[in-house]
Design a protein around this nucleic acid. Structure first.
Ligand SMILES: Nc1ncnc2c1ncn2[C@@H]1O[C@H](COP(=O)(O)OP(=O)(O)OP(=O)(O)O)[C@@H](O)[C@H]1O
Length: 682
DNA sequence: ATGTGCGGAATTTTT
DNA sequence: TTCCGCACAT
């Protein structure tokens, strides 16, 4: 037989870019041989760049893009990396399996849901849905809320999740993180089981399931393990320091079952997700787990001025644990970071706004500036001031877009269409009807669940009998709305389904139950616009439930909606950079967080959070703290202590700014024709 | 069984 | 300030 060889050329210009855009140690890491590789380096040293170029390099060598798994920490990071990859290798970039652990788990579980007892149309539960189902499970599972000392649903939720993510038993998790609840361990265990049963019965998975069930699939179905091992010939994990035991087990299992090619990238000093089970030993012990693996270090910082690097390095040096890394800035000298004490949170907001406006006047776009804070509520006073001064901004903390009650209501309509067994969504919809409370909602759901076809059951006479007489009219209208929604071919045209929700009784419900109904209706319209980009309801809903970066408030008041100031929690700022960074509310009890410092290892975790915050700045960094603070707007105003993260470093490393006040003289304009015997000026 | 109104408690960080 | 749980009236 004749052999024909198809010739493949590496993408145009890739070789040149690999040579020009990377320094020698970065290049060495990007072009590391197959096998287990660890890239351990400080902030701004080009880790993200290296991992992106490594993927490009692999593709350039003929590795099929679809056999590469690139695990990122956020969806935003994945989008950015795929975008940059597109610039290097063109269309191939889109075929890489890029996403967070949860995204990839979701995609894979859709294919294999049946092997785990689920249907492929399972829905993903967000935190609130989880709490709702857990509350029901607590009623089932012997944790009646009567007892004052009994754990609260949110506590139980956290414990169950923490145990799963750390691969510890519930006993261990309780003993470690909530010692006062040890006597409840048996009940919590029971609740966990009842909760899992409810999820299975309603064909729903929570965030943890996307990992737990993925691992279960790999453990219990050898064919799937072999298949996925083959599928992912190269695995790359960004932000390795914030992976937890569960995630590590999944990737390492995949790598071992496949080609044994795993590249891990990260910085133990930037590990800030301990509350979610992250453990930076996952990165530090990588060489122990994989004898013979290569380690790459990068110690040139391309991001920040030497002055900023000096402060960040001095701060992290206060931690006793962690792997020390040298870091040298390549940038020209800049200004020292500035530390300002302000009188109170209002003065802080005014100061930050003024600095931002002046910086913008000097030609720096708003999108090159960010205000970072430890706790979401640290941003609310500033938001008020930004609104008053017409500075457009984008918030990345707090409630996500889809977590707002009205968006969740609309989502519930879509979700029951998608997965008619979705208990959380049925309950949510039923509870919107006046006269139907938890008991009736439960009874109706039972009728739906026990029938083969919930949609005919919901319209059946027997179901109506369970509805109190005075609610029957509204219930019938609700059933009618559901039918109209289902008639729009919602699976393939999600936007039309949302329009159908808006055409039914739901807007009246919004007006009756919620404040600011017009704003909320606008959000729903916005949701429809977003949905119009999708041709699959399943993908829309899954994307939304996993959309960690889509927040509610997008106050783009200005003319140029693309130039927005960023307000972000430090956690959401991970991996990002801005020219000018403002870190606010640097008071002890706030940043570091008061509750965190009491936990063992808590102070060092908080210091890492501070480290992440200050290392986001490229050119200028301002740290501010109010000298007086009233806790959250209630309670008395007290003197505050400046954050230990400021006071513990050498004062030579920053410049202290004095705040002066300049009152523009108020001239009362005399109206022409007025006499001179006016009221006295104040 | 629902819904309202009171009092007390409490606020990390997120997929 | 807001949210949650509880007691009471419907
Ligand atoms: N060799 C290089 N030459 C010029 N600029 C570079 C080089 N490597 C990285 N940079 C730039 O330095 C900045 C930081 O890079 P990158 O975000 O990849 O760092 P990182 O190590 O991932 O940081 P972090 O740990 O903070 O997420 C980016 O603006 C990047 O473009």
């Amino acid at each position: 037989m004749r052999k024909i060889t198809l010739k493949h050329k590496p993408p145009e210009g890739l070789a040149r870019q690999l040579a020009e855009d990377l320094n020698p140690s970065q290049r060495e890491a990007a072009a590391a041989p197959d096998g287990y590789n660890l890239i351990l380096a400080g902030p701004g040293s080009g880790k993200t760049r290296v991992i992106t170029y490594r993927v490009a390099w692999l593709i350039g060598r003929g590795v099929p893009a679809e056999s590469i798994l690139l695990v990122t920490f956020t969806r935003r990071a994945s989008r950015e990396m795929v975008g940059r990859l597109g610039g290097l290798v063109g269309n191939e970039a889109g075929r890489v399996w890029a996403g967070t652990f949860h995204h990839v788990g979701n995609r894979l579980l859709r294919r294999s849901a049946r092997e785990l007892g689920f249907e492929p149309n399972f829905t993903i539960l967000d935190g609130e849905d989880q709490t709702d189902l857990l509350r029901l499970a607590m009623d089932d599972g012997g944790l009646a809320s009567k007892n004052k000392l009994a754990p609260k649903p949110s506590q139980v939720q956290h414990l169950i999740s923490f145990a799963l993510n750390t691969r510890k038993s519930l006993e261990e998790a309780v003993a470690e993180t909530a010692g006062d609840l040890v006597e409840w361990t048996a009940e919590i265990q029971q609740v966990a089981e009842a909760y899992a049963a409810r999820k299975l019965a309603s064909n729903c998975m929570d965030y943890d399931d996307l990992l737990v069930l993925w691992l279960k699939l790999l453990n219990e179905h050898p064919a799937r393990l072999a298949e996925q091992g083959k599928m992912f010939r190269h695995i790359l994990v960004d932000e390795m320091q914030d992976t937890n035991a569960l995630q590590i087990e999944v990737v390492e299992k995949l790598a071992a079952a496949g080609a044994g090619n795993l590249t891990a990238v990260g910085d133990d000093a930037q590990s800030i997700y301990r509350f979610r089970g992250a453990d930076y030993d996952n990165i530090l012990k990588f060489p122990d787990r994989h004898p013979g693996s290569r380690i790459f270090r990068l110690d040139v910082n391309y991001r920040s001025t030497p002055q900023i690097v000096a402060l960040t390095q001095a701060s992290i040096a206060c931690n006793q644990t962690g792997f020390p890394k040298s870091l040298v800035s390549t940038r020209p000298d800049g200004l020292k970071p500035v530390v300002v004490a302000v009188a109170d949170v209002y003065e802080e907001a005014a100061l930050v706004c003024q600095e931002i406006l002046e910086t913008r006047d000097r030609g720096v776009p708003l999108s090159e500036m960010a205000v970072l804070y430890r706790n979401h509520y640290d941003s609310v006073v500033l938001q008020g001031e930004l609104l008053a001064r017409n500075i457009p901004y984008n918030v990345r903390s707090g409630i996500r877009f889809f977590e707002q009650a009205h968006v969740k209501d609309v989502l519930a309509f879509l979700r029951v269409v998608l997965n008619p067994r979705d208990e959380a969504s049925w309950r949510r919809l039923l509870l919107l009807l006046p006269g139907i409370g938890p008991a009736k909602a439960g009874a109706v759901y039972q009728k739906l669940a026990s029938s083969g076809d919930p949609f005919s059951a919901v319209a059946a006479a027997g179901t109506m009998a369970a509805v109190p007489p005075k609610s029957r009219g509204l219930f019938a209208a609700f059933v009618n709305d559901l039918n109209l929604i289902r008639a729009t071919d919602p699976e393939n045209r999600p936007a039309a389904a949302i329009q159908a929700v808006l055409a039914g009784g739901y807007p009246a419900t919004i007006r009756q139950r919620y404040d600011k109904p017009e704003n909320r209706l606008k959000d729903v319209e916005q949701f429809a616009v977003l949905a119009a980009k999708y041709e699959s309801l399943e993908r829309l809903v899954a994307d939304l439930m996993l959309a960690g970066d889509l927040y509610g408030v997008d106050a783009s008041g200005g003319e140029d909606p693309t130039d927005l100031l960023v307000l972000s929690s430090v956690h959401q700022a991970k991996g990002l950079e801005w020219s000018h960074v403002f870190v606010i509310r640097l008071v002890d009890d706030g940043f570091p967080n008061r509750r965190a410092v009491d936990e063992p290892g808590g102070e060092e975790e908080e210091r890492r959070i501070f480290y992440v915050a200050v290392s986001r700045a490229k050119n200028e960094l301002m740290l501010s703290y109010p000298s007086t603070i009233s806790r959250g707007g209630y309670g008395p105003t007290v003197f505050s202590t400046p954050s230990r993260f400021i006071t513990e470093v050498d004062p030579e490393l920053y410049e202290r700014a004095e705040l002066e006040h300049d009152f523009e003289v108020l001239e009362i304009e005399a109206k022409p024709g007025d006499g001179d015997d006016e009221r006295p000026t104040k």
